[in-house]
Amino acid sequence: MTTDQIMQLTYLVLLGAAVGGSAIVVGRKNMGKMAQQAAIWALIFIGVIGAYGLWEDISNNVNPRQTILSESAIAVPRSNDGHYHLTLDVNGTAVDFVIDTGASQVVLSQRDAARIGIDANSLNYSGAASTANGVVRTAPVMLDQVRLGAITDRNVPAVVNGGEMDNSLLGMTYLGLYNRIEIANGELVLNR
């Protein structure tokens, strides 16, 4: 232990003794009730420590995340909304995608395009895409670098959607770069 850590520990012990001593002085006439309250607080404290220690396991069950199985394989669990979500590093920025095998292209929302350094207002929306909500205008762009774990792809074609989108879509122009895509037991596995 360093001197600073010893001093911090000493301070905390003295503070705890002062608080505990004052509680004993105030509650000395009703020691049974005070012991009961101290036990309740101790159990709350132990519960908080236990939840903190198990948080990673709990959060993986509540909000499952992608797992890198090897340098060439990534497992993506089905999310609670029934879709597969994948986070890619696009031009140095983490972008969350919904995997959409029905989309022929990688489709960026205007918000995500701005986050990776594309000015959506200066693009030429010369393309069109048919969606469940009708036809939307699209602007072609080239993603300099798309990284997923150890896998890096350069010059990946994409489009920026001219309409409103909640999430960017990871379509077949990216998924087609993988040798094998498998869905089984609530998990999508991408293999290069």
Rank of each mutant, 00 (worst) to 15 (best):
T3A: 06
T3Y: 11
D4H: 14
D4W: 09
T10E: 15
T10A: 12
L12H: 15
L12M: 15
V13L: 10
G16P: 10
G16T: 08
A17L: 09
V19D: 00
G20D: 03
G20S: 04
I24W: 15
V25Y: 14
M31G: 02
K33G: 09
A35K: 12
A35G: 07
Q37D: 11
A39K: 01
A39M: 14
I40S: 07
W41F: 12
A42G: 13
A42E: 15
I44V: 14
F45M: 07
I46W: 10
V48Y: 07
V48K: 13
I49G: 02
G50D: 09
Y52S: 11
Y52V: 12
W55E: 10
W55S: 11
D57L: 11
I58T: 08
S59E: 15
S59C: 09
N60F: 12
N60E: 08
N61P: 05
N61F: 04
R65K: 13
T67Q: 15
I68L: 13
L69S: 08
L69M: 05
E71Y: 02
I74R: 01
P77Y: 00
R78D: 07
S79V: 02
G82C: 09
H83T: 02
Y84A: 00
L86Q: 04
L88M: 03
L88Q: 03
G92I: 04
T93W: 10
V95N: 03
F97Q: 04
F97I: 06
D100C: 07
D100W: 04
D100V: 05
G102S: 03
A103H: 08
V106L: 10
V106G: 01
V106T: 09
L108P: 00
L108Y: 01
D112W: 02
A114P: 05
R115L: 15
I116M: 06
I116P: 01
G117N: 07
D119G: 11
A120N: 01
S122K: 13
S122V: 13
L123E: 00
L123K: 08
S126Y: 05
G127A: 01
A129F: 10
A129Q: 12
A129K: 14
T131F: 00
T131L: 11
A132I: 05
A132K: 14
N133V: 00
G134S: 00
G134R: 10
G134F: 14
G134M: 06
V136S: 06
V136W: 13
T138P: 12
P140I: 00
L143S: 07
L143T: 02
Q145W: 07
R147T: 13
R147V: 04
L148E: 00
G149C: 04
I151T: 01
I151P: 14
T152L: 11
T152E: 12
R154I: 13
N155C: 05
V156E: 08
P157W: 09
A158K: 03
V160W: 01
N161L: 03
N167H: 08
S168D: 01
L170S: 01
L170K: 08
M172N: 09
M172E: 08
T173D: 13
Y174N: 01
L175N: 06
L175M: 10
L175A: 06
G176Y: 04
G176E: 03
L177M: 12
Y178F: 14
R180W: 12
R180M: 11
I181Y: 08
I181V: 05
E182V: 11
E182R: 05
I183S: 07
G186V: 06
L188G: 02
L188H: 00
L188W: 00
L188A: 02
L188F: 01
V189S: 05
V189L: 04
L190T: 05
N191M: 13
